[in-house]
C-alpha cells in the first residue's frame, strides 16, 4: 500500500448512479490505508462534489481515517459483552505495551490502535481484531504474545 500509487478514476464503476461519494472514499481508503488531503481535492475536481461536503462525509463516519496508519491495525472491541468481560483492561494493557492511545500509531508504524463499538463476536468476549484476524477470550496478559507475530511481520 504505497501512498504514492496513482488512484485510478477511470476504472471505477460508480458512474450513472447517485450516492457514489461514500463508495469512492471507501475505495481510496482500502487502497491507500487512509484518505489524504490530495485525494479529497482530487475527488472534488473529478466529481464536482464540493470540498466541504466531501470533508463533512469523511469526518462523519467512523470508518474513514484522515491520517496514515501503521502496518497492522488493532481494533479493540468495546461492545456491551466485551465491556462486561473487561475490555477496559485490554485497552489499558495495550496502552501499556504499545505506549499509544486510541486512534494513535506507534512511532515505528507497526501498529495503530482503534476502539470499535462491536465486532459481533460477543460470545468470545473480550475480543480484539488485528487486521482481519479475530482474537477472542483474551486476558491482558495474553496480549504481548498475540501481537508478537504481527510486529515481526510473520502473521
Amino acid at each position: 500500500m504505497e501512498a504514492t500509487r496513482p488512484f485510478d478514476f477511470a476504472n471505477l464503476h460508480f458512474k450513472g448512479e447517485g450516492g457514489t461519494l461514500i463508495p469512492l472514499l471507501q475505495k481510496v481508503q482500502t487502497e491507500e490505508g487512509y484518505i489524504s488531503k490530495e485525494r479529497i481535492e482530487e475527488i472534488h475536481r473529478k466529481t464536482g462534489v464540493p470540498l466541504s461536503h466531501i470533508f463533512g462525509v469523511a469526518t462523519f463516519y467512523a470508518q474513514f481515517r484522515l491520517r496514515p496508519v501503521g502496518r497492522n491495525i488493532i481494533k479493540v472491541c468495546h461492545g456491551t459483552a466485551c465491556h462486561v468481560a473487561g475490555a477496559n483492561a485490554i485497552s489499558a494493557s495495550l496502552k501499556d505495551i504499545l505506549q499509544i492511545g486510541d486512534g494513535e500509531t506507534t512511532p515505528d508504524r507497526a501498529f495503530t490502535v482503534e476502539t470499535v463499538s462491536c465486532l459481533g463476536c460477543c460470545s468470545l468476549a473480550p475480543v480484539i481484531m488485528v487486521n482481519k484476524d479475530t482474537h477472542g477470550n483474551l486476558a491482558p496478559a495474553d496480549l504481548r504474545k498475540a501481537l508478537a507475530p504481527y510486529r515481526s511481520g510473520k502473521a
Partner: peptide, 25 residues
C-alpha cells in the same frame, strides 16, 4: 449492496437513506 461506513445512527431509516445517497447520515 451498500456498505455502511460506521455510524450507529444510520440504523435510523431516514439517516440510512441519507447515507445511501452519499450524505452524512
Amino acid at each position: 449492496l451498500k456498505e455502511g461506513a460506521g455510524a450507529f445512527v444510520c440504523g435510523e431509516e431516514t439517516a440510512l437513506i441519507a447515507s445511501i445517497e452519499g450524505r452524512r447520515g
